[in-house]
């Protein structure tokens, strides 16, 4: 559906996106994940047509759209701050993208009504964006972007402006919406939980490059680099043979084990409990079930992990 080939975008000589190759399939939720400044938003903007790449190509459905202006691309964007038109009603915002399409007035009105009910905003069509809550504004932004029936929906940190509770609900709604529409969603986020929860595949970015692409479980269980291991979830890293051994906290078992240490601190997170242990290997974190009984702070504890929990990473 989307092919990105050797894409490079520099700002003032410094590459923000540095030779990215990427293929995103039809009907896929693909997430670009990385810390701020990693180039994920710039890459998304190159796909949307808001930045002209210095090198490389963007193909949509097999067509090279690299030189096409945003208004000529069959993609639409949900902007980070939603960018709703403040002087237009909800219905007029949703209808905006239909004005340049060849449609009868009745068709247009029907499409607007369809989109508004798709995001469950019936009854709010006449409101201005300033009269809506944050969650409602986000729905308008989605309805507006979907109204043109894009082949791909681009979403730039669409959940970052929502509070934590609403964010979790909205994640599920987005997944549900994508499943019903069957189009590709390309999502930009710095929140690894969000990326894990909704993506079919994740592309982890660092310094303008994609360092690993894979399904969430693959990224989590088999990180390709130390950066990925540390960015996606918690990880214990132990130096060995000039490289690193990575072990996820939930694979560390407490009690009898080949290693010994002292419990430094326990953090109770509800369903899980994190146990921080000082040992000869350095600071180790173990994640145990919240209901497990754990040693007190300062107590000596043994720990270990099964061989298949180890992941070797290059230095």
């Amino acid at each position: 559906m989307i092919r990105v080939e050797g894409l490079t975008k520099r700002f003032g000589g410094i590459p923000a996106v540095d030779g990215v190759d990427l293929e995103i399939g039809q009907g896929e939720i693909f997430c670009l994940l990385g810390p701020s400044g990693c180039g994920k938003t710039t890459l998304l903007r190159c796909i949307g047509g808001f930045e002209a790449p210095d090198a490389g190509r963007v193909l949509l459905d097999g067509h090279d759209v690299t030189g096409h202006a945003p208004w000529l691309r069959p993609v639409n964007t949900v902007f980070q701050s939603y960018a709703l038109f403040p002087h237009l009603s909800v219905a007029a915002n949703v209808a905006f993208g239909l004005e340049t399409l060849a449609m009868s007035k009745a068709e247009r009105a029907a499409r607007v009504a369809e989109m508004i009910s798709l995001v469950r905003l019936e009854g709010l069509a006449a409101r201005r964006p300033s009269q809506l809550s944050g969650g409602q504004r986000q729905r308008v932004a989605i309805a507006r972007a979907l109204a043109r029936h894009p082949k791909v929906l681009l979403l730039d940190e669409p959940l970052s402006a929502l509070d934590a509770k609403l964010r979790e609900e909205t994640r599920l709604e987005l997944v549900d919406l994508q499943a019903r529409l069957g189009i590709s969603f390309v999502f930009v986020t710095h929140d690894q939980d969000e990326a894990m929860a909704i993506s079919d595949r994740i592309g982890v970015m660092q310094g303008g490059r994609i360092v690993q692409v894979g399904a969430p479980a693959e990224i989590y269980d088999r990180p390709a680099t130390r950066f990925v291991a540390e960015f996606v979830g918690r990880i214990n890293l132990f130096a060995r043979d000039g490289g690193w051994i990575a072990v996820r906290p939930e694979r560390i078992g407490l009690g009898a084990g080949p290693h010994a240490g002292t419990v430094r601190e326990c953090a109770f997170l509800g369903e899980r409990r994190l146990v921080f242990i000082d040992s000869a290997l350095g600071r180790v974190v173990a994640s145990v079930a919240g209901s497990d009984i754990v040693p007190e702070n300062g107590a000596a504890v043994g720990f270990g992990w099964p061989a298949d929990a180890e992941r070797r990473l290059p230095a």
Binding site: F50, P70, N76, T77, A83, L84, P86, F96, T100, L101
Partner: peptide, 23 residues
């Protein structure tokens, strides 16, 4: 005026002249 509004207009199919008059 938020530059993102003009980008949103472009994204929704409005070339620069149309984006200017509508936004």
């Amino acid at each position: 005026i938020d530059a993102a509004l003009v980008e949103a207009a472009h994204d929704l199919g409005a070339p620069p002249a149309r984006a200017f008059w509508r936004v």
